[in-house]
Design a protein around this nucleic acid. Structure first.
Length: 159
DNA sequence: GCCAACGTTGGC
DNA sequence: GCCAACGTTGGC
């Protein structure tokens, strides 16, 4: 089973929005970066766990756990001329962009802030804290995933 | 709002 | 294929 971190701006679609969605599930569409596309198309499997990260907000950090709730499939918005994600170069025979369904599982006991992710020595390899990283979807290791959940079960900055 | 970092585009 | 221009991301 794989583990992932996905970013969302809470002003657009927060973890709370996902929890409130029908069956706590939404289509994770609109990814328009090739590297992130490859992670979705070639890496994601139903049941993979995801850390839900809030970006572009006053308190950036990981706020919840979700799971991949479908196999990857062509992102429908690429075929919709009215969508902001419309891609005229994409065809149903050769779709360029992929989506998965994402289901919220649980909020973390408390958010784990970006500052904490940066400070934690066990998380030095985490892509989200690396300079200039702008991927909205990235893999995390099993150990990293567990560590972040573990941090959320502890007091901030605590043992 | 600012700005650094990065991906994409398009002229050549 | 190079590279400058441009748009976007995202922390601060």
């Amino acid at each position: 089973m794989g583990q992932w971190l996905i970013k969302s701006e809470p002003g657009s679609f927060s973890f709370e929005n996902l929890l409130a969605a029908k069956e706590q599930t939404t289509v994770w569409d609109g990814v328009r970066n090739y590297q992130a596309r490859n992670f979705i198309r070639d890496g994601m499997k139903m049941g993979d766990k995801m850390l839900y990260y809030h970006s572009s907000t006053a308190q950036p950090g990981v706020v919840g756990v979700a799971e991949v709730a479908s196999e990857p499939y062509p992102d429908p918005t690429q075929f919709d001329p009215r969508s902001r994600y419309f891609d005229p170069k994409s065809t149903s025979e050769q779709p360029r962009w992929f989506a998965v369904d994402v289901r919220a599982l649980e909020p973390l006991p408390r958010p784990v802030s970006l500052a904490e992710l940066k400070e934690d020595s066990a998380l030095g390899g985490l892509k989200v804290t690396q300079r200039g990283n702008r991927l909205s979807v990235m893999p995390v290791s099993r150990a990293e995933f567990r560590r972040i959940v573990r941090l959320s079960e502890q007091e901030p900055g605590g043992a």
